[in-house]
Design a protein around this nucleic acid. Sequence first.
DNA 1: TACTGGATTCACT
DNA 2: GTGAATCCAGTAA
Length: 183
Amino acid sequence: MKKVSINHFSGDAVDLAKFLLGKLIEYKGHKAMIVETEAYKDDQASHANKITPRSEIMYSTHGHVYVYLIYGMYHCLNFTTNKGERGAVLIRALEPLEGLEEMHKRRKTDKIHNLCSGPGKLCQALNITKEINSTKIHDKLKLYHYKEIPEEDIHATTRIGITKALELPWRFYIKKNKFISKS
DNA sequence: TACTGGATTCACT
DNA sequence: GTGAATCCAGTAA
């Protein structure tokens, strides 16, 4: 399998969000395909809106892993992008491929579609924690080309920005994929 | 130093 | 459909 080049992470977050669909994540012996993503850049509701020690990585790097804790209980996996500008792509759902037994154990469920169908769920299933925050892609978490997703199979949704009349962020998912999140 | 609230999930009704 | 769990980054003082 061919590694995804870091060069892909120097462009716009929206482009990257779309590009990442169908790519394969390998981490700690687990393999899973990305089926749902969300792009963040100028949205007031996102960490990308302001430079802080936590979000600094989104300004200063591209092609890095950005993991943070939400609601005190769940981790969210992001990739930084947009060289020279703020931006990140949140991974919202995965299709599990290998390492399912451990995923079931961690998630405490026997339903396969409940393993990685949400940002918090997939981090729990793959044991992704802040331990890999700010590491480079391919350093600990690896990313490979896996499946080409035709344009017509990609669904894009928008959300109106909180204070700006911008349609941000852009959420992308693979149509008819049973592993996408419900929300 | 203290307070506030969130890029979520799950149990319960 | 609603609310609780839970903790730390960000902010104000």
